[in-house]
Amino acid sequence: MSAILVIEQILNGLQFGIMLFLMAAGLTLIFGVMGLINLAHGSLYMVGAFAAASVAGATGSFLLALVAAFTVAAFAGAIVEIVVIRRLYRAAHLDQVLATFALILIFSEGTRWVFGSFPLFLDVPSYLSGPVTLPGGIEYPLYRLTLIGVGLLVALGLWWLTARTRIGIQIRAGENDREMIAALGVDISKLYTLVFALGAALAGLAGALVGAIQSVQVGMGEPVLILAFVVIVIGGIGSIKGALIGAILVGLTDTLGGIFLPEFLKLFMESGAATQTGSALASMAVYILMSVVLIWRPTGLFGARP
């Protein structure tokens, strides 16, 4: 295995991690601010991808498609917050799990009802397609490099929003003491709708960006949703920094585990068996990582200590 391949794989792991971060950022924001477990986050990701695919199909513009994904998901998020989520802030985690589980059912089958059972088409725009050559002679798809760039921009933007703006101050204050900032005259329910819509919009954007190189289909959100939860739990719920680091950890573990575990096992085992056992272990790797982190630090890497 050459050094170039190893570097390329590390890059792939990083890139996968950033993709997960796009999804996890909204999730951790919503949980951090509102204390809400939102299982329907994956559905908003799907909504974004479907919106993007429809708009790209009608107009042929990828940028417009991204805008549509962002807006439609934000809009869907705002509606969901006003109609359902608003009633659940004081409820137990259990009720939130059930309500958002119900939302998954409604969103998935609703999308299938509107768009049919077959996957939709969404492609990388021509100006971002094809590989570029990186220093060292690595050929890497331009679109994936763009994804890394967008992910880092989103991270930066979120940091700026929470650390440097008035809304950010309100958000952080809301995390700490909801009654207090309400008493200080902040319209807390408007703030929550805003945060939820922002989280949803990020999920929708992620769905559109990732949908361009994956399959836009009903149920596409659930596998990512679980991984996104793994990410925010490893990072510590509510922490944007934790989500970024957790996402990269998960991305690297998943990608590198899939490649090196079978190779590693081939040192002791016959090749076919090593490939199978290695892949089996690799698919469990991120969950093993998560439980080890939680056993070591029960509130994640950057979570608030109880």
Partner: peptide, 8 residues
Amino acid sequence: TGVYFIMI
């Protein structure tokens, strides 16, 4: 505890 227990 809490959400972390759900997730683990």
